[in-house]
Design a protein around this nucleic acid. Sequence first.
DNA 1: TCGTTCACGC
DNA 2: GACGTACGTGAACGAA
Length: 456
Amino acid sequence: MQTATDAYKLLHDGIQALAKVEQAGLRIDVEYIKNKKKEITREINALEKQFLKTTFFKDWLKSSKEVNIYSPTQLGKFLYTTKNLKVFKQTVTGKGATDEEALRQLRIPELDTLLQIKKLKKIRDTYLESFEREQVNGTLHPFYQLHLVKTFRGSSDSPNFQNIPKRDKEAMDICRKAIYPRPGNQLVEFDYKQLEVRIAACYNGDQKLIDDIVSGDMHRDVCIELFKIENFNKEELTHSTLRSATKNGFVFPQFYGSYYKNCAINLACTWGQLPKNGRWKKGQGIPFEDTYLANHLIEKGFTSLDKFTEHVRDIEKDFWEVRYGVYTKWKRDWWQLYQQKGYIETKTGFRLQGVMNQNDVINYPIQGSAFHCLLWSLIEGVKAQTKEHWDSRIVGQIHDSIIMDVNPRELKKVIKVMRCIMCNDIRQKWEWITVPLDVDVEIHPVDGSWADKLKN
DNA sequence: TCGTTCACGC
DNA sequence: GACGTACGTGAACGAA
């Protein structure tokens, strides 16, 4: 186990290594950004024009002298007071929400246009704008901090390199097409696989969890139970879709401390929208074994969201009391330890104190220690690139991944060294890592952008 | 200037 | 038995 002195040294070495990462930076295509911004602006203007012509907007204008279509306050007032629509989702202050989820529930087609406009504005004003503003002679130098986050994770700003779109294909493409390696080089990403879950297993020592990480498939197992699937086949599109829904709508939320009611709603949205009145009709949802998911669920007796929720409650009970019973016991002991001492200590030597609830006490040390694995690997990576006089450099970091600008002649060697640092050396250094670590390596084409994939 | 709401990442 | 997903950065709005 690590001491406070070790913890200090990690931050000391870490921030110096990150300074080298900041100094290296990433090339960006300023011309592309300028053109893309113009293109998006034209698109926004056209969509705005379209929106302003709708009866929805005209009614809105009648109800109020001046309308700002981008004001959540004004939109909420119009939807939930003037039009008196039912509130599906509330904000933290108890008002009707106007975020994407809330607006989709209302099923008003005009609002889809508004959402598309907002998405484009986000891309233009948060990402492209900041890339252009912060670049120096065509190189972007995102900043990294180690002193701001209460879990002892890192953060990034000016611009934030850690929240650039990835899941939404259109947004990902537009933003990441601005980012390049130096001429003749290629971007390579080293992603720790399931890092937080593996670090959780180091804390709780749950053998079932470790077995699942090393050779099992927990998402598949839970998926089969949740949707009562016979003869699960990973190659079948429907089954892999439901496995993803299970992973993102049940397993991960459960690890972060969510509970069955929210999970049930997540899972019931597998067809995009929550069924009206909490009941679904035949023919709804994704295709499923010659019919539809709704048909399948009705056949299994889950005719309504309430019935399905009871089922999810039972699955949750089994998940924590049977499947990962050791993990559950650790959670109780760990919470008790915090209550006795008033603080907890991470495997990496940091002390977490202050007012925390049960979820915080469980999640903070896991999140922090997971990041520290990445940070240690980054320090060693910077050491290697300096000592071995590589042209290749680490140019970014996103919590559990490292992004490098690699000279193709060094590609094989760089991958070999980074893999060795991230999976082997770190376990020599930190014996508390009792679970194997693994990395995904994604290689982008030579002279390709961060959005470009290697053609095989 | 600051709190709120929203949206992006892990 | 009820309750309840963690951590960030940043843009825009609107009240102070």
